[in-house]
Amino acid sequence: MGRFGMLALAFIAQTAMAADVKVENVWMRATVPGQQVAGAYMDITSPVNARLVGVQSAAAGSMEIHFMRIHHGVMEMREVKALPLPRGKTVKLAPGGFHLMLFDLKRPFKTGETVPIKLTIETADKKRETMDVTAQVRDLNGQMMH
């Protein structure tokens, strides 16, 4: 196999990882005018040990991976620099646990709209891939529009 064939194989092997990561149930709640932050939620399943190391959206000034819990009756929320994605295990980003925070929203989001989100995933061998997902905006109770 020539040099071009080897390069093509290396490229295919490298890009297969992000394509194989399964991201489902991507959603966020509708926002009200003047609201500057929002949470986004999803289920991520990776076929290899990996980590979610970056998030961004054109709909927000910045985004972070966050963890929230109630500890001794007090809500604690903190940024997480990387979220482990164990091989074959579905990691659920949901209200009351791990989630994505969008800051400095560009505009309010109405039920039924979609919001683009870019995820950066790093494998155990430090290769990084980005993938685009689309969050469905649900009503303020988290319900889908009928």
Rank of each mutant, 00 (worst) to 15 (best):
M1E: 07
R3N: 12
R3F: 11
L7W: 06
A8E: 14
A8C: 09
L9T: 10
I12Q: 12
Q14F: 13
T15P: 07
M17L: 13
A19Y: 07
D20L: 14
V21E: 01
V21Q: 01
K22V: 10
E24W: 03
E24N: 11
V26P: 08
M28A: 01
R29E: 10
R29G: 13
A30Y: 02
T31H: 09
T31W: 06
T31A: 05
Q36I: 01
Q36L: 11
V37H: 04
Y41Q: 03
M42Q: 05
D43F: 00
D43A: 14
S46W: 01
P47T: 01
V48N: 06
V48G: 06
N49S: 12
N49C: 03
R51G: 05
V53S: 05
V53I: 15
V53K: 07
G54A: 08
Q56G: 13
A59T: 00
A59V: 00
A60N: 00
G61V: 01
S62G: 05
M63E: 12
E64V: 08
I65K: 04
H66K: 10
F67V: 13
F67L: 08
M68R: 11
R69C: 08
H72K: 15
H72Q: 15
G73T: 01
V74C: 03
M75W: 10
M77L: 10
E79I: 11
A82F: 09
L83M: 08
L83C: 01
G88P: 02
V91S: 06
A94K: 13
A94F: 06
G96A: 03
G96H: 01
H99R: 06
L100I: 15
M101I: 02
L102M: 15
F103K: 15
D104L: 03
P108V: 02
F109T: 11
F109Y: 14
G112E: 09
E113G: 04
K118T: 15
I121P: 08
E122A: 12
E122M: 15
T123K: 09
T123G: 10
A124C: 01
K127M: 10
R128A: 09
R128Q: 15
E129I: 01
E129Q: 12
M131H: 03
V137Y: 01
V137Q: 00
R138A: 07
N141C: 04
G142Q: 06
Q143V: 02
Q143D: 11
Q143I: 00
M145I: 07
H146S: 15
H146T: 11
